[in-house]
Design a protein around this nucleic acid. Structure first.
Length: 284
DNA sequence: ACTGTTGAATGCGTACGCTG
DNA sequence: CAGCGTACGCATTCAACAGT
């Protein structure tokens, strides 16, 4: 994102995390009277004011300014320039979510409303999104639970923000609950070694190609993708250990080499392992 | 209608070599 | 060490079909 600001000073350096390919930053800044900013990003983003002592105005293109106050949300599509202006001195804490379009499309094929993605929404209210944003911000400031927690919150926020509806025709071609549990438990227990599709199909007594499509109908993910996701969770765990070395972690988590692990990691998480690690708060 | 199989076409993961 | 490019083989998807 490119920005030009004047009159803002950073009170605390931004706290960043990344979940599901979405980068989350919590900023605490002080703005003096007349402070102004201009922002442009190639990625869509959501701006949430968590705390503010004085409202400030926001404008986009030729549209009139609207006041941004705590608890209000602004969605800015990729490539839209916005301006902000502060009329009175104020302290401000806000959460910025930067969405990677290709990751969103890959995760939600056919479910994203392109019209909704490309329409700016300034200063709207949505209590569900706000509540989820506050919980995500709390995790950025002070991580307390496993990444699964943040991923779940982020998924819920995406579903609400982009109004992603439930699949209407579930059940045709999907695995039953018993088979699905059996297979997913097997994958998670064996994710560090190479699992053949035929092995999984045999496990539930189905043909290879039918099993593959039934698994995807049940989980939204191909069996191999599911295994890669399970492996990446192991990689994240290893990265947080002191003295982490990518080549060593790749070997320990079943990847052929560091290059392979980096590509899969970027595909699943949205950023490379080194970038992900840099975005993690320093742990004691 | 639903569950499952088969086989061909297509897509993607993997291994390896390379660069900075 | 981190990341990119490419070729090959396996995984996945799809259409047509069979059995219940």
């Amino acid at each position: 994102m490119t920005s030009m600001t004047q009159g803002f000073s950073i009170v605390e350096s931004p706290r960043s995390r990344s979940w599901n390919g979405v980068l989350a930053d919590v900023w605490t800044v002080q703005a003096r009277q007349g402070a102004a900013g201009e922002y442009l990003s190639s990625h869509p983003r959501l701006f949430v004011v968590l705390e503010e002592s004085q409202p400030r105005s926001l404008s986009i293109g030729e549209k009139p300014m609207t006041f941004q106050e705590a608890g209000r949300l602004s969605y800015i599509p990729a490539g839209h320039r916005i301006w902000s202006h502060v009329s009175h001195q104020t302290g401000l804490m806000h959460l910025d979510l930067h969405f990677d379009l290709s990751t969103l499309v890959a995760r939600l094929p056919g479910n994203l409303d392109v019209q909704r993605l490309s329409t700016p929404r300034l200063m709207f209210e949505n209590n569900r999104v706000l509540m989820l944003a506050r919980m995500l911000a709390a995790e950025c400031i002070k991580p307390s639970l496993h990444d699964l927690y943040g991923e779940g919150l982020m998924s819920a926020l995406l579903a609400e923000l982009f109004q992603i509806k439930a699949e209407s025709s579930r059940g045709n071609g999907a695995l039953n609950a018993h088979r699905l549990r059996h297979v997913t438990e097997f994958i998670e227990a064996n994710c560090l070694r190479s699992i053949k599709l035929q092995e999984l199909a045999d496990l539930v007594g189905l043909s290879q190609s039918y099993f593959s499509s039934a698994f995807k109908a049940s989980t939204g993910m191909a069996p191999h993708q599911w295994q890669m996701k399970a492996r990446i969770e192991q990689v994240k765990h290893h990265l947080l250990l002191p003295g982490a070395n990518l080549a060593h972690i790749a070997g320990a988590t079943g990847f052929a080499d560091q290059a392979h692990m980096t590509r899969v990691f970027k595909h699943v998480v949205g950023v490379t392992p080194a970038a992900w690690l840099r975005a993690q708060p320093i742990r004691q």
